[in-house]
Structures are given as C-alpha cells and as structure tokens.
Amino acid sequence: MCHSNLPLLEVDNLSVSFRMYDRAFGQRDLKVIQDLAITVNSGEILAVVGSSGSGKSLLAHAVLGLLPQNATVSGRMFYKGKPLDEQNQRKLRGSEIALIPQSVTYLDPLMQVGKQARGTDKSPERMRRQRKVFQRLNLTRQAEKLYPFQLSGGMARRVLFSTAIITDAELVIADEPTPGMHLDQALEALSILRELADIGKGIILITHDIDLALQFADKIAVFYAGTTVEESPVADFIKGPGALRHPYTKALWHALPQNDFIPIDGFQPYAGNLPDGCLFAPRCPLKTPECEAGNPHMRKLRGGKVRCVHAT
C-alpha cells in the first residue's frame, strides 16, 4: 500500500533547546535534543526506546509542533516529502498525524470520555466507530458516560488509545500507550497498531517495554541523552549483541532480564552538562581519544544506522 518511496516521516538533525532562566538574571539555552534522526515508512512500526529523559516524548511534541513557547527547534522534518513547518503541522495535526498521549491528565476532567474519544466530529459514523473501538478495547457502553476520575489507569490508557484509532491518521505517534493496561489488553492495543501498519499507516511507538516492542515493531530506534544512537531492524535485536551496532544498544541488550540482566555502570548525562564529543563516551568500553572529537554522525551500517566511530 506504499504509494511512493518517500518515507512517511523523516526527521533529520533535529535539535530542541529550551530557554531557561538561571538564578537571578542569567538566561541560557538548554539543549535537550540534538542531532536526532528517525525515519518512518508507511506500513512500518518504528519503536523508539531509551531511558527516561532521553527525549522520546519531546520528539513526539516536536513533530506535532506542540513544544512550549520557550523552545527553539532546528533541523529538518519532512512529512511525505513536504517540510513540516508550523503551517503544515497545524494542518496535519489530528487529521493526518495523531498522537496517543501518555497520561490521564490529557483528558478533560469535566467531560465524559466517550465524547472526548469522538472529538469534535459529531456524526453518527464517528459514534459507530468509537463504539467499535471501545468494544475492541474491552471498554463497555457505560464507560462512555464516565468521567476521567472514575477510570482506572488502564481504562484511561485505552480511552486515550482510542482517540487516535478512530481517526484516519496516516501517522500515529503512540507515546507509551500500554503501561497500566493488563497484558492481554496491551497485546490487543499493539495488535491494533500492527493492523494499522499493515494497511499502510506509519506508527511511532514510544515505549519502555522492549519486549512488547520486539513483538510488534519493524524497526527500533534507540535514544540516548537526546540523540539517536542506533536504528536497526527488529531482527537484529532478536539475534543479539553480535548483530547490533552501537555499544549502548549492546549494553541495553545485556541489561534485559531475559538476557544477562547485567546493568551498565554510570548514568545517562542530563541536558546542561553533556560531554563534548560522543554522548556515550564516558560510559563506553570502546572509548578512544577519537571519540571526544565531536558527536559522531549517524552513518549507515549493515542495513541499519549507527552513531559511533567504532561500530562495525
């Protein structure tokens, strides 16, 4: 169902910084995302993994143009080959690009959730669709009439999930849609995303749950300290560290409970005191003086992409 060979969404060299006010008078720009690059094709689920603070949600907000006033964005974003500028973002939001937000606070506390799921479209067709999606997500007819405060965490997630599914969006950005859901519900939700991808839509699945991502995604992008360190096919993750490219991705693989369950020393540097050069260098076993000469570029390697001078 892919209509052209242009990627659905291409993000290249994306940087996001926030203007912060220091103590009394000082003002500085805090760079929270730099050199971020991802590509999503139609018919594909791209899982975005990485620890908290690695810039996953900010990517979602940057693509939709929802960053706060004090944020500056640079870099290039293309949707179906057209640059995603403010005007285009406004046009595409909700109609072509849909967001599944990550917490119950994204629901209006004073509006019944059925109405919120349907959005501004008041047609009977929309209503039918909403009921179908609710049913599929195991939400009853009574649940439509509930207010967000009456929902359990899992129900709230499923309502949020439904908001994107009942649109005709070409690109769905799911920002951690499954936490709080029971396993079978999470599996159901992700298989819905899989079905959407199979009919030609593009999905960005931001998640902490690598297991689930491995089951449903096509590609995995690994984020570290506000940048992408690797983008690789899911198969490589399943094969193991030998097939993976970046030392951080390998460390992540080793840290998984079903593998070695061995965490890597140190912690992710936070915006404001990032190292010069490669962001992973301070924790990297392969570190050489070369690594301190600027953040390496993303390069193609064995059917994936990696940001490391030593990767082979």
């Binding site: 939709l64 929802l66 406004r90 939001r93 909700g94 109609s95 849909a98 967001l99 937000p101 917490s103 606070t105 994204y106 629901l107 209006d108 506390p109 509006m111 959005g119 501004t120 908001t163 649109t167």
Partner: peptide
Amino acid sequence: SDYVLFARARGNDTWTIMKRH
C-alpha cells in the same frame, strides 16, 4: 493543561478549545 495540549494535537483551534474545554 495537558488536555488542552492534547486538543491542540488533535487539530482544534483556540475557539474550539475554549468552547469544548
């Protein structure tokens, strides 16, 4: 609030957001 941010993400303009939320 987050829910107004989400309304924006769904393509609502300011007046619609005022009316709905």
